[in-house]
Simulated scan of single mutants.
Amino acid sequence: MTDHVIETDGLRKEFRRVRGGKHVAVDDLALAVPRGGVHGFLGPNGSGKTTTIRMLLGLSRPTAGSMRLLGEEVPRRLPAVMDRVGAIVEEPKFLPTFTGRRNLSLLGRSIGVPRSRVDEVLSEVGLEGRDGDRYRTYSLGMRQRLAIAAALLKSPDVLILDEPTNGLDPAGIRDIRQLVRDLGASGVTVLLSSHILAEVQQVCDSATIIGNGRVLSSGSVEELVGRETAPGVRVRVSEPERARHLLEDAGLAVTPDGTRLYVECVQDPARITQVLAEAGLFVSELVPDRADLEQVFLRLTGGEGLPPSGRTDEKDRP
């Protein structure tokens, strides 16, 4: 049994431009999603994330390359594994005048799951007590939870979510994040495509960062962040100017940073406290400038940022 539930090799997708020529949305993509937990799929707008997901689900045909989902070659063997895969790629279509429960019951009947499964997924996504309300009265966060409930009806081994917190308020984002964490901890492998860097760092166990349709880096979130060398330490002291001269005399590179000092390339922060203490100065604050996923992302993508809000909806068509 492979350790990866999703694998692509040399995956390529080209679109024809209206005025001639080709647009390459995915270029030689090698993606490997480990079994279990939550895997983030991160990249700038138009980097090929949604196109890759659509190819994995048989909604778009690749130009070249191979894909495997739960060990089966797709799209050729997709019917063999679709009962084990749940996905939300585009906004689900529910009947607005029907209740949340009735929408799920109709869907469950169409795919042959028992009625008891509807109760289970409603509980899983936290919609008990609101399942009797009409869908049109649901908030955006409730609609997203109902969509996830629908994707869970089949008890999937793999759940693919494309921007699940898009457009939600802070409370809704918090609820969906917790739900995704719980699903990953329960044994479901979740592939989470997101443009929110903090979301990936808070929720995901591992991640793949892509740009221009290619993998730029992949691994556990801890590994990705750890590859960035923390550039320095921020220090607060009662006499910053005197402290700066003392540290510079000790061979350290120091830059004033408001009411603090920024000391570059410090391997051992204890050296700072030692130099200052020997001169009778005592540190009131010493904070390592740790790398985060945003720094990793910006370095890998050459500073190409992600939108602070709004859907990263990359149809990748010119």
Score class of each variant (00 low, 15 high):
residue 3 D to V: 14
residue 160 I to Y: 06
residue 216 L to N: 02
residue 221 V to K: 00
residue 198 A to E: 15
residue 128 E to A: 11
residue 7 E to S: 12
residue 30 A to W: 07
residue 198 A to M: 12
residue 18 V to G: 06
residue 200 V to E: 01
residue 81 V to F: 10
residue 1 M to D: 14
residue 263 V to C: 03
residue 111 I to Y: 07
residue 304 E to C: 13
residue 94 F to H: 04
residue 43 G to N: 10
residue 111 I to S: 05
residue 245 H to P: 02
residue 68 R to I: 06
residue 88 I to Y: 05
residue 55 M to N: 13
residue 290 R to K: 12
residue 24 V to A: 09
residue 215 V to I: 04
residue 173 I to F: 07
residue 112 G to H: 06
residue 99 T to P: 14
residue 177 R to D: 08
residue 286 L to Q: 12
residue 114 P to C: 04
residue 289 D to L: 09
residue 44 P to V: 08
residue 18 V to W: 07
residue 313 D to G: 11
residue 233 V to W: 07
residue 203 V to A: 00
residue 92 P to F: 11
residue 230 A to L: 05
residue 180 V to M: 06
residue 218 S to Y: 03
residue 142 M to V: 08
residue 311 R to S: 06
residue 180 V to L: 02
residue 11 L to G: 07
residue 220 S to W: 00
residue 20 G to T: 08
residue 144 Q to E: 01
residue 116 S to R: 13
residue 52 T to R: 14
residue 194 S to P: 13
residue 73 E to Y: 11
residue 76 R to E: 10
residue 236 R to M: 15
residue 211 G to I: 03
residue 24 V to N: 12
residue 275 V to M: 03
residue 102 R to G: 01
residue 210 I to Q: 01
residue 154 K to Q: 00
residue 194 S to D: 15
residue 288 P to H: 12
residue 40 G to C: 07
residue 183 L to R: 05
residue 33 V to H: 08
residue 73 E to T: 03
residue 84 R to P: 01
residue 177 R to L: 08
residue 138 Y to R: 07
residue 24 V to I: 14
residue 276 L to D: 02
residue 89 V to A: 12
residue 179 L to S: 06
residue 308 P to G: 05
residue 108 G to E: 03
residue 1 M to P: 06
residue 137 T to A: 15
residue 69 L to A: 11
residue 142 M to H: 08
residue 269 P to H: 04
residue 251 G to I: 01
residue 42 L to F: 08
residue 109 R to K: 10
residue 54 R to C: 08
residue 288 P to V: 02
residue 98 F to K: 13
residue 263 V to S: 00
residue 45 N to R: 13
residue 41 F to S: 06
residue 171 A to N: 13
residue 117 R to L: 03
residue 119 D to A: 07
residue 109 R to A: 13
residue 144 Q to M: 07
